[in-house]
C-alpha cells in the first residue's frame, strides 16, 4: 500500500496514479497535494490573485483536487501525463472561479455583453503588449534578487499579507514592508530604464 505524501509520489508512474486516485479521498489528496499542491496553487493564484482573496484561491485549489479525485475515471496514463491532467483541470476550475468572482462586478458595470463578445482585432495588439509587459515585469522581479523576489512573489502573485509573507521568508513584517517598498521602486527604475533604451 502506498503511503500518502512519501517520496514515491515524485516518481510514480501514471498507472500508479490511476490506482491512487481510485483509493480513499484522504490518501489521494495527500499524494496529489504533495506532488502538485504548489502547481495548482500557483495556477489558481495566477488567475485569481487580482480579483479574489487568499480564501478564494484556497477554495479554488480545494475544488481542483476534488474534481481531480472525482474525475479519476477520466484519467488514463495513455492519454497524457498526470501533470497535464492536473494542470488542465486547475486552469479550467480557476477560470470558473474567476467568472464567479467577477460576475457581480461585470453586471454592475453593465459590460456583460462586451465581455461575452469575442475580442476585436484591435485587442490583439493590446494583448500582445500586455504579454510583453508581463514578461518584462517578471524579468524585473527575478532581477531583484533574494529575498526581494520572494517578497514580491508572495505579496503580489500569491496575494499574501505582509505578515504571512514575513513568515514565508523568515523575516519580520516591518523588514518585509521596507524591502517591499524598495523592491517596487527598484522595479520601477528597471522598467523605466528599459523604456528609455
Amino acid at each position: 500500500m502506498m503511503k500518502a505524501g512519501d517520496a514515491m509520489t515524485e516518481t510514480m508512474t501514471d498507472t500508479e496514479w490511476e490506482e491512487l486516485l481510485s483509493s480513499s479521498p484522504k490518501t489521494a489528496f495527500e499524494a496529489l497535494y504533495s506532488s502538485f499542491g504548489g502547481l495548482v496553487y500557483a495556477i489558481a493564484a495566477n488567475k485569481l490573485s487580482g480579483v479574489g482573496c487568499q480564501a478564494d484561491i484556497e477554495d479554488c485549489v480545494g475544488d481542483v483536487f476534488a474534481e481531480i479525485f472525482r474525475s479519476a475515471g477520466r484519467f488514463s496514463g495513455s492519454c497524457g501525463s498526470i501533470k497535464t491532467f492536473v494542470s488542465t483541470i486547475a486552469r479550467r476550475r480557476a477560470i470558473d472561479c474567476y467568472r464567479r468572482l467577477t460576475r457581480n462586478s461585470l453586471r454592475n458595470e453593465s459590460i456583460e455583453d462586451e465581455a461575452i463578445l469575442p475580442p476585436a482585432y484591435d485587442d490583439t495588439e493590446e494583448d500582445a503588449e500586455e504579454r510583453i509587459m508581463k514578461q518584462r515585469l517578471w524579468a524585473a522581479v527575478k532581477s531583484l534578487g533574494e529575498p526581494d523576489t520572494s517578497i514580491i512573489v508572495y505579496q503580489y502573485f500569491y496575494g499574501l499579507s505582509v505578515s504571512d509573507t514575513a513568515v514565508k521568508v523568515g523575516m519580520t513584517p516591518a523588514a518585509v514592508q521596507k524591502r517591499s517598498v524598495r523592491a517596487r521602486a527598484k522595479m520601477k527604475n528597471i522598467l523605466l530604464r528599459e523604456d528609455r533604451e
Binding site: 504548489g38 500557483a42 495556477i43 488567475k47 500586455e130 508581463k134 515585469l137 500569491y158
Partner: peptide
C-alpha cells in the same frame, strides 16, 4: 498585483517550483 497575474504557463510552473505555498 494585477500585472503579476495572468502569467504564461512556464512562468507559473517556475514560480510554483521556486516559491511554493
Amino acid at each position: 498585483r494585477t500585472r503579476l497575474t495572468g502569467l504564461d504557463d512556464s512562468t507559473v510552473e517556475e514560480i510554483a517550483e521556486r516559491y511554493p505555498v
